[in-house]
Amino acid sequence: MLFNSNIVKQDGLSKKIIENVNKDDLFLYSQTSLDLVDDYEIDKASAINRKEVGINRAEIESFAEKGNFSRIISLGNGQTSDIAKYISYIKKIPHICIPSIFSTNVSFTDKSCLKEGEVKKTFQSKPPETVVIDYDLISRSNFSYHYYGLCDILSIYTALEDWKISSIDTGEHIDDFCYNIAETLIKILEKQLPIILCKSRESLDAILNLVVMSGYITNIYGSGRPESGSEHIFSKELESKIDIFHAISVSIGALIMSKLQNKNHNIIRKLVDDLGLLQEAEAGGVTRDLISSALIYANKNRDRYTVLNRADIDEKKANELISEIFEGYIFTETK
């Protein structure tokens, strides 16, 4: 299943779908997203806040086993979509996904990021049968949140370099088709950034197209290798230490890893600065100590071959990297 999601663009459709949820459906939502819908009426018996289900795989499976539903409708983003996709996969039922922001490519991949105990892992799931793009709903979110989905494009820059490093060091095969598509997405992002920064309907369309394609690359290749490397290994560690948006942790990771890869990170820096991601990180409570700790642990907990396999990062080296990369920007003091 690579391109099986039917993307439906229709303003106002999300409210109609929500109000037509029936007793055989599971309506899984995030409260933040539901609050964006005006004057809705829902079947309380079929509506479940995703926090009641949780993000732990065993708990999700237990919940799904007890449930007697034939279709799942999700309203929300990262974790909401991950949970819904996994339930849809294990119960073999259709899934209608309604994102309220373009914060990740999760609505378009066949993987779910869930917890196994206290550790985040990636599990097989399936893409939604239908993804509803309702700009009436989406335009009510803070526009900056839509930029977050672009970090799954930004990460391609370091992920592809990690892939090349692995090919040199271990002989890992590089799929030229997926590699070239991923590389093209980076170029498209750079070219369309002025349009994206206008915060218009055209901007949303440009973001959506990039996010969709980044998700499909994962499905085509069979794993996140073309867009997920050392920067994502770092981001998992940082997210285990502080509750922040995935995009913020990935953008910090991409800056650090491009430096370790001896690549010119000015392209990443410009994109991150233009999107205001480091300012969001500082406002969210990210400190130098947290970055240092996450970097040290990421160096030990590698789940695929990347530049981290060549690095030997202790506290001294971590702090030197952070000072060099972020001096004059943020994270100059621990809060």
Rank of each mutant, 00 (worst) to 15 (best):
S141I: 03
I165V: 00
R225N: 06
F177T: 01
N309L: 14
I256V: 10
R269W: 10
F63E: 11
L154I: 06
K187D: 11
A84I: 09
A159L: 00
A283P: 14
K241C: 09
H232K: 09
G328F: 14
T80L: 03
S103Q: 06
L204Y: 01
I188D: 14
Y221Q: 08
D11S: 10
L275I: 15
S70Q: 13
I87D: 03
V131G: 07
K259I: 07
N4W: 04
K66P: 09
S125P: 03
S107V: 09
I322Y: 07
K9H: 10
A283K: 15
L185K: 04
F27C: 13
G276S: 15
P226M: 00
Y305V: 09
L255D: 08
D11C: 05
Y179C: 02
E65W: 08
G222P: 05
S167E: 03
L13T: 10
D243R: 02
P127R: 02
Y297W: 15
I18W: 07
I256S: 07
A318N: 12
S166N: 00
K263T: 02
E183A: 09
Y89E: 04
S81C: 09
Y145V: 00
G171A: 03
E118M: 08
S292H: 13
N68Y: 07
G76N: 10
G117Y: 06
F177V: 01
E116R: 03
S125F: 01
D152N: 01
S200A: 13
V307H: 05
S200H: 12
I55K: 14
D110T: 00
K126G: 05
M257E: 12
A58W: 09
Y148R: 00
L208G: 13
N22I: 10
N209E: 12
Q31E: 14
